[in-house]
Design a protein around this nucleic acid. Sequence first.
DNA 1: AACCCATTAACAACTCGTTAACAATACTTT
DNA 2: AAAGTATTGTTAACGAGTTGTTAATGGGTT
Lengths: 226, 226
Amino acid sequence: MKKKILYVEDDSTLAFLTADNLEQQYDVAHFTNGKEAYAAFKKEDFDLCILDVMLPEMDGFELAAAIRERNVEVPIIFLSAKTLKEDRIKGLRLGADDYLVKPYSMEELILKIEVFLQRSQKQAPAKNTLCTIGSYTFDPANYAITRAGQTIQLTERESALLRLFIDNKNTILKREKILNEIWGNDDYFLGRSMDVFISRLRKIFRDDESIRIENIPRIGFKLVAP
Amino acid sequence: MKKKILYVEDDSTLAFLTADNLEQQYDVAHFTNGKEAYAAFKKEDFDLCILDVMLPEMDGFELAAAIRERNVEVPIIFLSAKTLKEDRIKGLRLGADDYLVKPYSMEELILKIEVFLQRSQKQAPAKNTLCTIGSYTFDPANYAITRAGQTIQLTERESALLRLFIDNKNTILKREKILNEIWGNDDYFLGRSMDVFISRLRKIFRDDESIRIENIPRIGFKLVAP
DNA sequence: AACCCATTAACAACTCGTTAACAATACTTT
DNA sequence: AAAGTATTGTTAACGAGTTGTTAATGGGTT
């Protein structure tokens, strides 16, 4: 199964060359501007993003921020021209995992891609940092969620589900995907069980209006949060 | 109180990115060469060091040796370029507490930092010093716990378990982890044995309401204490 | 023998994920 | 539109499995 890469680059000559090279090993979706790329990202999952910084309409930083909004995990590699000023590079902290200065060699790029793909494969299960969601703080290691000093203890399942939602904030999670990810498989009764859990999570967030779990009928759910 | 990190990296672009990220959580002092960094280290204490291996004037290994000379405890994390030869990387393993191969992700770096900071925080008080918990004083060396002049003698196991809880106060300890840590392995009957010990500890703390050992069903226990 | 302590046994109490049941909502067909 | 069908929201009840607690057991030590 080939890994899916989102590649955004407006210089079509360079893009053609690069995409052609990468396609031997990866499933590459290439776009020439940020808006189209973002639209594509909303539709499907990618395993890694390669973004040129200078793009028409929506630049690489904005795009990265938008992508991070939806997925806190996917590795992002920036491609930047040598001439960038220091302060511009500050933008990198939006969540880039690495950057490459043009002109780069193919080997160099592929090396970085491999490093990140291997890592995300391994590291995925071990992320235990606190994360904030609306006015709450979620502590995955302790299965606990805190707000204004009050702590609610979650069960293992509730916690796993909430974490999945937070990792995919503002993105649609398909029913099937949630079930396979957390319950291990997908049948009618597990689906109903999931509905019960979603109802319980909603109850927890009931008094913070900025957080909602929206249902997308017949498809899945989306955690909407700032 | 933010933890102080000594960060030495000569690639200013990468350094800027990294330092900027870390500054959200830590107090970062960044230097571009080993000599300046060492001078700074002589002046003040740091809680952790992050050293690039390739540095002008005084390389990461030399710097690490100099730092170790003055402080045998401070955790050191090396950053090394992918191109380093295997044998060099082996060298890393010997002196450093950990190393990270470039390119690394921010999350990975922060994860490692957290691991070391927490470790050094916990290890210090853990040895054999008296520690207070609620209105009690626990003396791990003598397996004894005192309150208002009254001393209760604990058994070796009770003491080991209590100490583990105190070292991980207000954090969930998984059943499996407790069992492996104290009993050496993890089977059904040892689990029941542990439950008995927890019941005994609870009995000891029964008259101090500020101390509880909470069960997190199917996961583990948490010592809740001020 | 007497004692200490960890383990095992036994049973009570509790928790969680699931299932059930019914209401509310969305979609399809007529 | 209206009626019919499928999906989702919510609450409550159930039952398997886990945990709390006390007592009995048995190996090791003095």
